[in-house]
Design a protein around this nucleic acid. Structure first.
Length: 773
DNA sequence: CAGTGAGCGAGCTTCCGCTTGACTT
């Protein structure tokens, strides 16, 4: 008999809390939201005050059944979902879905999973805050209305299966607009002058590096300056020393963890979250989806002890950070090691590295400032007004730097400031070498997954639980691609003054290469331009912020949620209707030129299946030829010769085993076909150039793999085979697949054994078969 | 899984945010 049932969102949390509460309490988890709007249509009754039509989410049916069973016998149900808008709604949905009575239900909240915090929560129960629930309903309904009215518009005007939404469309917009900025960026160059001086002290020679306080945009000015330097005298005019300090970064939130794991460990956002989830489930770190930088009192104490023991008391500085992030709801702690005194953990390479990062960041956040001394040395040039400046930085006390330093996106190692030699004002020096190097201005950087998350967080768009899924959605819809791009060779001027002679040379550098950056695709550009043109209000970077203000008013009881939705919806729906009527279908069509052979027009545009080229005008007399663009090509940049090449496929490569080998490119990339079988090309193969020898090699490779796939077949039953698949051995019989029970050795199964397995087990359903239902 | 792009029409796609396993050939 269960006296008390506590329901939390996460099963890992449930396990921990159960330990704190004793035998009168059973703690279960509901695995997040348990109900949602119906999926198949709008799910909102617009005529009747926007009543949401909720159903129990299919994968939560079992969870609800189980909870119902326990709740029936319990004296009291404690709803302990997170203390934020979504958590409050989860509690309310649980009441509805489980049919709980008010007298048997209490709502409790806590921000940290520690015994005192849980006990205190139990001592201070409250009721469900219906205003906060309504704010969540408004959020949910607004997102549904926007997504399910905009997306179908795109299906009609651009291409089926596209999607748009409050969050993803802004994410795409950021990437599209950044690319436009880059395209429109005006690269300028200027000469940066560096000098290396020799100071003679007694018999010792000291070197000092300095940079001129001015850059020359014209080469002739740089040369003129160096000419002056030939006969100039150099001396120290001023030495300015001032103390400065650096403070540690706050503990990790989801967003900052994703950024640092990307910069320091090269993890993708999805990878970071996968590994963090593993660490959380094994009890090594606190919850990984959080927007809070807060640490529990317990953690602060342990951190203090760890710092004292490891580095000494002078390194301790206990700090409580406050969140400045827009829209943060702070239902959890910051991401930190559960036990800060565990310096390292058992685990695989990714886990130990991510844990190490989290440990360092957390510990550093509780350490003292680093004290620095910055020195600026001004060097006078006798015959001109410009000055050379030498900069130095000395760490007087390393503080938190002993453990951890946050990385930046735009790190360049050019300006390394180190220790300066001892100098005095008036000291004379002679230049060993002075050089003016042409430096180019940098366009704004393309987004990485992590820097996009950072930007979204700044705009208050999206939540810790959605950053990674959003990034995956916009890639899945093919609005953006994450890829590496080659750079190019650029030449720059270098003028050097050495031994009283000036020499000029042209040098080259490799620049502009990109690694794992987000680029917009043709479809991304087209969809974004369409949405920005007709729905600038929704695509506005401040749209989320302004609706969030209204959600807050609903939460405070100052606004009625469906009133707010009504005020939004009707003008928005009007906008949809108007766009439906007035806008043209968009395909981004562009006339590229003419086919030199036939004189026919060559067009590029977005077709039913993506970017394509068309040869010939479409009219009743003439059916044009079509072909899809290759991966990496864009309707924006494709040239006429490249387009013409696309019509050369399919192409006969030669004869093999008396049958034609044909090379082409299909839905799943380039392939060769032989005897109606398909063989995918490798990345390095080009269907336009592939040789017969190489094609035959591919055919042999695949045949070999096929033969390895077959473990056993039976002459008496031709449609029964034991095969080796991606997930281990399985049975294939009459186009159905069957799992082989683990106890069996697949290579020793007899025909009888197989038939028995087939009769006793259900065929494994393919995901496609499920979808069709 | 492997060539589609007209036009018709059926039936489908789609949002954001909260949680983890189930399951794939």
């Amino acid at each position: 008999m269960t006296k008390n049932l506590v329901i939390v969102e996460s099963p890992a949390k449930a396990k921990t809390i159960e330990k704190f509460l004793g035998k009168d309490f059973v703690v279960k988890s509901c695995f997040g939201h348990v109900r949602d709007l119906v999926k198949k249509d709008l799910g909102v009754d617009i005529e009747n005050g926007f009543i949401p039509q909720y159903v129990i989410t299919p994968d939560k049916k079992k969870v609800i059944t189980d909870l119902k069973k326990i709740a029936k016998d319990a004296e009291m149900i404690w709803l302990a979902s997170d203390e934020d808008r979504e958590g409050e709604a989860i509690a309310w949905h649980l009441v509805e879905a489980l049919g709980l009575k008010e007298k048997d239900t209490k709502r409790i909240v806590f921000h940290e999973i520690t015994k005192p915090a849980i006990l205190e929560a139990i001592e201070n129960p409250r009721k469900i805050d219906k205003n906060l629930v309504d704010a969540q309903q408004a959020r949910r309904v607004l997102d549904r209305l926007v997504g399910f009215e905009l997306s179908p518009l795109l299906w009609k005007k651009i291409k089926p299966s596209l999607s748009a939404g409050r969050v993803q469309s802004v994410a795409v917009r950021l990437i599209v607009e950044r690319e436009e900025e880059i395209k429109g960026f005006n690269v300028t160059s200027a000469y940066r002058v560096l000098a290396e001086f020799i100071i003679t002290k007694d018999i010792k020679q000291i070197l000092l590096s300095a940079e001129l306080n001015k850059r020359f945009s014209e080469k002739k000015d740089a040369i003129a300056f160096l000419e002056k330097c030939k006969n100039a005298a150099f001396s120290i005019e001023d030495i300015e020393t001032k103390p400065s300090k650096k403070s540690p970064a706050p503990p990790f939130t989801t967003s900052t963890l994703q950024q640092e794991a990307s910069r320091k460990l090269g993890f993708s956002v999805a990878n970071t979250m996968r590994v963090a989830q593993q660490l959380y489930e094994s009890g090594k770190i606190t919850y990984m989806r959080t927007d809070s930088v807060n640490l529990s009192k317990l953690a602060l104490n342990v951190a203090k002890n760890v710092v004292t023991d490891s580095f000494g008391a002078e390194y301790v500085k206990t700090r409580q950070y406050t969140t400045r992030t827009k829209g943060a709801q702070e239902a959890h702690e910051a991401i930190r090691p559960t036990y800060l005194d565990n310096r390292t953990i058992e685990g695989d390479h990714s886990q130990t590295r991510l844990y190490d990062l989290i440990w360092k960041r957390t510990i550093a956040s509780q350490m003292n400032d680093a004290l620095l001394e910055k020195t600026n040395v001004t060097i006078n040039i006798s015959n001109t007004a410009e000055k050379f400046i030498a900069r130095g930085e000395v760490i007087k006390f390393d503080g938190f730097l002993k453990v951890y330093m946050e990385s930046r996106d735009d790190e360049d190692d050019e300006n390394q400031e180190g220790l300066l030699p001892p100098l005095t004002v008036g000291e004379k020096m002679i230049p060993k070498e002075i050089s003016a190097q042409e430096k180019f201005s940098q366009h704004p950087p393309r987004y990485t997954e992590a820097s996009l998350v950072k930007k979204l967080e700044e705009l208050g768009i999206g939540r810790p639980s959605t950053y990674a899924p959003t990034i995956s959605t916009i890639q899945k819809r093919e609005y953006v691609v994450k890829e590496d791009r080659d750079g190019f060779i650029r030449s720059y001027g270098m003028i050097t003054l050495k031994d009283k002679t000036i020499s000029e040379e042209i040098k080259t550098e490799n620049t502009g290469f990109e690694k794992s950056k987000l680029f917009p695709t043709d479809i991304g550009n087209l969809v974004n331009n369409f949405l920005v043109q007709y729905f600038d209000n929704i695509l506005d970077y401040n749209f989320t912020a302004s609706v969030e203000e209204e959600f807050d008013e609903i939460a405070q009881g100052k606004m009625v949620w469906n009133q707010m939705i009504r005020d939004f919806y009707f003008p928005f729906h009007e906008q949809i209707e108007k766009t439906l009527e007035q806008s043209q279908k968009v395909s981004g069509e562009k006339l590229l030129g003419q086919d030199p052979v036939s004189g026919e027009n060559i067009f590029v545009r977005i077709g039913r299946y993506g970017p394509m080229v068309q040869k010939g005008d479409a009219d009743p007399e003439n059916k044009p030829k079509y072909s899809s663009l290759k991966k990496g090509q864009s309707i924006d940049t494709i040239t006429l010769p490249e387009a013409l090449d696309l019509f050369k496929l399919p192409r006969t490569v030669g004869l093999f085993e008396d049958e034609e080998v044909v090379a082409s490119a299909g839905r799943f990339g380039p392939y060769v076909r032989h005897k109606s079988a398909f063989f995918s090309l490798a990345k390095t193969d080009d269907p336009l150039e592939i040789s017969l020898d190489r094609a035959i090699e591919l055919i042999h490779e695949k045949r070999k793999k096929e033969s390895e796939k077959l473990i056993r077949e039976f002459p008496e039953k031709e449609d029964l085979k034991i095969l080796n698949g991606r997930y281990g051995p399985y049975l294939s019989y009459q186009k159905q697949n069957y799992k082989i029970p683990k106890a069996n050795d697949p290579s020793k199964l007899t025909l009888e054994d197989c038939l028995k397995i087939i009769n006793e087990t259900e065929p494994s359903k393919s995901s496609r078969a499920k979808k069709k239902k």
